[in-house]
């Protein structure tokens, strides 16, 4: 696959994104330089291809991605991979607030730490964080997995639906309606397989799996009649 270099600098972000799409559709592997942490780089990427941001990116990098493999050399801003439905996003450095917000599929791999509310409202897919999770990881996440090889900040697994937060290190505190459960051996196998696939060291990890206590899932009554107005 031949490579195409696209420079960002202070150029128009709309045109830059059009250049990404054209290059990816023409079968190029794209290298992006002079990224300057700008917002909205690589929005709505196609179902296949590779794009490498050689620097830091701003908000919503890889947002609405459908299948492209995205690599960010340094840091990423807010909402990295928000609403993505496929593909992978690898962030070498720090990934800011709400990484993978409302994502519907695919994989986000953060090599550094993650900011607050990682995986907020996510619907499916995996977020693997080699460092630590920030505040309120997995806030109101529906489904999918957030996996941290490091620890987790305060309010971990806050108000979860069916999503799971896996933490190997220390957890500062659990969020509302969250509990730690003993993972099944098969689940651990699955996680290990995923980590192996990402080229991460195979070793024993003391996993804590955080799931919902389901106390916030329901109002008190399941009986429709109790909702009839007086």
């Amino acid at each position: 696959m031949s490579e195409k270099v696209i420079q960002v600098g202070h150029r128009d972000i709309r045109i830059i994104n059009q250049e990404f799409l054209a290059a990816l559709e023409a079968g190029y592997s794209v290298v992006v330089t002079d990224t300057l942490s700008r917002h909205n780089l690589g929005v709505g990427l196609p179902q296949s291809g590779k794009i490498h941001f050689d620097g830091s990116v701003g908000y919503y990098c890889g947002g609405l991605n459908t299948g492209t493999d995205v690599r960010v050399e340094n840091n990423a801003g807010w909402g990295t991979g928000e609403a993505m439905s496929g593909g992978t996003i690898t962030v070498n450095g720090y990934s800011g607030m709400s990484t993978g917000a409302a994502m519907l599929g695919g994989l986000i791999h953060v090599k550094g730490d993650c900011g607050p509310r990682c995986g907020v409202a996510m619907k499916a897919g995996d977020i693997v964080v080699e460092g630590n999770l920030g505040y309120q990881a997995g806030f109101m996440a529906h489904r999918g997995r957030i996996i941290a090889l490091g620890g987790a900040g305060p309010s971990c697994g806050d108000a979860l639906w069916e999503a799971e937060v896996w933490v190997a290190g220390d957890i500062e505190s659990l969020g509302v309606d969250a509990k730690i459960v003993e993972p099944e051996a098969e689940e651990v196998e699955e996680i290990n397989a995923l980590l192996k696939q990402l080229g991460l060291e195979e070793r024993f990890r003391d996993w804590r799996k955080i799931v919902s206590e389901q106390k916030l899932w329901y109002f008190e009554s399941r009986d429709a009649n109790s909702w009839l107005m007086i």
């Binding site: 942490s37 830091s56 701003g58 340094n74 840091n75 450095g93 800011g96």
Partner: peptide, 15 residues
């Protein structure tokens, strides 16, 4: 925003 930091330190990303 980090992009503002880039104006002064374009090559430093250890923010």
């Amino acid at each position: 925003e980090e992009q503002a930091v880039r104006r002064i330190a374009p090559d430093r990303w250890d923010v």
